[in-house]
């Protein structure tokens, strides 16, 4: 049975990951997997499985709180979910057949790559300021509290969004993360979607994405319910706190913080995977 101290450590780690995740528009898995795998020494598959369940919980509670505020682009989300769930299925099966060190190296490479993308596009906003612009079937508009204005956007380069979503879905199940750290920069940088809408839509999608993967880990017996429970409850608490603070934080500051954290994770994962 699970010892009380271990459950409390995982609960606390979940709370930290959840609050960071909510602040950055991620599921929090990108922090939790390295902590469980490198910090506490769980096998990568067990860490990934726990993390995927916290991604589902965060996605569900965050999206429930945001529903009705138009920040989530549901139509775009449902369309891209076809790609993320398909990728997730592929990644979930592949994860059962690949060595742990391979997954660690992949984790390291991808997190560094995304950190570079984030830093290189720090000042882009991708906003159509005229509120009368027709956003089209897949575009959207929402009220932004910071500027007090209505933000309207159209979706550009849909095939790029679909490709990135498939990749994000595969990586999600392989590595136990939400995949937001691939989708959000791509949707923001290349597809014309404002960061907040991209993050909210990604957070909405990753629940379904992570489920396709988590179910496979559960079937394989790698999902330990007691450990997952401690992590989920911690992440729920943390993301609740992060959400309250997140609306007031600046987008640029968030991007820089995200990039720094990803670099650190990258180095640690590569060091372990190559050894």
């Amino acid at each position: 049975m699970t010892s009380a101290p271990l459950a409390l450590i995982i609960f606390a780690a979940g709370a930290v990951a959840g609050s960071l995740g909510a602040l950055l528009g991620l599921g929090g898995g990108v922090f939790l997997v390295p902590f469980l795998n490198l910090g506490l020494g769980f096998p990568f598959g067990v860490a990934a499985a726990i993390s995927l369940t916290t991604v589902i919980a965060t996605s569900s509670s965050v999206s429930a709180a945001r529903a009705g505020k138009q920040l989530i682009n549901m139509k775009l989300g449902m369309l891209l979910e076809v790609a993320t769930a398909g990728g997730s299925l592929l990644g979930g099966v592949t994860a059962q057949l690949v060595a742990q060190s391979t997954l660690q190296r992949l984790f390291g490479v991808l997190s560094a790559l995304v950190a570079v993308i984030m830093l290189s596009r720090l000042r882009r906003r991708n906003v159509i300021l005229d509120p009368t612009v027709d956003p089209g079937v897949l575009g959207g508009r929402y009220h932004e509290a910071e500027s007090g204005g209505v933000v309207t956007y159209r979706v550009k380069r849909l095939p790029v969004a679909i490709g990135a979503s498939f990749l994000a879905g595969s990586v999600s199940s392989l590595l136990g993360i939400g995949g937001g750290f691939i989708k959000v920069p791509v949707l923001n940088a290349w597809c014309g979607i404002p960061l907040r809408a991209a993050a909210a839509t990604s957070a909405f999608m990753i629940g379904v994405t992570a489920t396709a993967g988590a179910v496979i880990y559960y079937g394989h017996g790698q999902l330990v319910p007691a450990l997952a429970a401690a992590a989920i409850l911690g992440v729920q608490l943390g993301s609740w706190g992060g959400m309250r603070f997140g609306a007031a934080a600046s987008v640029k500051w968030l991007k820089v913080l995200m990039a720094v954290v990803l670099f650190v994770i990258s180095v640690m994962m590569l060091a372990r995977g190559i050894r």
């Binding site: 139509k75 369309l79 076809v82 997730s88 993967g213 079937g219």
Partner: peptide
């Protein structure tokens, strides 16, 4: 969109099938 969402449901069902395949018990 009903069709797209139905495809997502099918993908989720496929992952349940994959889970059963991997289930050693």
């Amino acid at each position: 969109f009903a069709a797209l969402t139905a495809i997502v449901l099918l993908e989720l069902m496929a992952s349940v099938v994959a889970a059963l395949v991997f289930n050693k018990r």
